[in-house]
């Protein structure tokens, strides 16, 4: 196990280097400069002032020098200072926003697993029946709907027309004055629509995967044996088949992280949720290079970590890998 872990960690190093190279290249492909944004809106700015801003941001140095400087700082976890006029460290800005995005995405992941797995199993056990067909259409519908469209419709319906739910943000104004449970309830009300829509949109992948896995497992000999022994169907499915069908689903967990983080841009814009997606979008629009690069790197590293965790979980859960590696050691 230790050997496996060490190997996985070592393998991450070239990936990390690759991530920084791609990030840097992508950002520096673009024409235009952050200075333009700041200066352009104001006519009272002289050409000399622009040069001054360029120097200040070190944009006058050659690219490889900029890259080297950036990476050497990255190693020390220094993401540089934002190009935005407040000039705050990028890491501070990300730290402010990251928890919101991560916790919301975690909730979505949990909801997704809680719903998609039963749906997948149901589809598999009722294979080709109407239940299978209609759950298929249902989960695909979630995938196929433009989520911002659905969100705005629900927002209008429940927020404006029926006035049941708040429209946007995370809290009501003045929530600080209330007790803990009131605040939890308040936040839950704010999150019903965004989390619901996000979960609806994410069901397809996992539930289809579950269905396939389940069908495959149900065709295996040992299930036949279990059935032949006269075990009740419920026991066969949930005790024997599910265990094995669930295993591959763990890897899906790691794979779905980038999609979730990416999707947060839209949700955070619509629902005015102060997360990393919105931060990234603002950074991109303002050509805040250090911020954009910082978020890209952190987003990628998070995915890397997610994958690592998923693989480790898989290794722990699957005795073949666990034992195989230990013997090799």
């Amino acid at each position: 196990m230790l050997y496996y872990l060490a190997k996985r960690l070592l393998l991450m190093i070239p990936l990390l280097v690759g991530i920084t190279v791609i990030t840097f290249t992508v950002i520096h492909l673009a024409p235009g400069e952050p200075v333009e944004m700041q200066v352009a809106m104001n006519p009272k700015v002289s050409a000399e002032a622009r040069e001054r801003l360029r120097k200040f941001y070190e944009l006058d140095k050659p690219l490889h020098v900029q890259y080297a400087k950036w990476v050497s700082r990255l190693v020390r976890l220094d993401f540089g200072r934002s190009f935005a006029p407040d000039g705050r460290p990028v890491i501070t800005k990300i730290r402010e926003r990251l928890p919101v995005t991560i916790s919301l995405n975690l909730i979505v992941l949990i909801l997704e697993f809680a719903l998609a797995i039963p749906i997948g199993i149901m589809a598999a056990t009722h294979r080709d029946g109407p239940l299978d067909r209609w759950t298929t259409v249902f989960v695909f519908l979630g995938f196929a709907t433009p989520l911002f469209w659905l969100s705005l419709i629900l927002m209008y319906l429940f927020g404006v027309k029926l006035d049941w739910l708040p429209i946007s943000g995370l809290h009501s104004l003045g929530y600080e004055a209330h007790g803990f449970w009131w605040r939890v309830g308040d936040m839950a009300k704010h999150l019903v629509i965004p989390l619901g829509v996000a979960t609806f949109g994410s069901l397809a992948g996992l539930s289809r995967y579950m269905r396939t896995g389940m069908i495959e497992v149900l065709g295996q000999d040992y299930i036949m044996t279990a059935r032949a022994k006269g075990l009740p169907e419920r026991v066969v499915i949930y005790r024997h088949a599910l265990r094995n069908a669930l295993l591959p689903a763990i890897t899906i967990l790691g794979l779905s992280i980038p999609a979730l983080i990416g999707g947060s841009v839209i949700f955070e814009s619509i629902f005015a949720i102060p997360g990393m997606g919105k931060l990234f979008m603002d950074g991109v629009m303002a050509r805040d290079y250090p911020l954009v690069m910082g978020v890209l790197v952190i987003g990628a590293v998070l995915t890397l970590l997610g994958n690592l965790l998923a693989d480790l979980a898989y290794a722990i859960a699957d005795p073949r890998i666990r034992h195989g590696r230990e013997r090799a050691l």
Binding site: L15, I19, I22, V26, L255, I257, P258, A259, I261, G262, G263, V265, F280, V295, L296, G299, A300, V301, T303, L304, N307
Partner: peptide
């Protein structure tokens, strides 16, 4: 695969 595609 590590990058959130939509961010890129």
């Amino acid at each position: 695969f590590c990058f959130p595609t939509f961010f890129l």
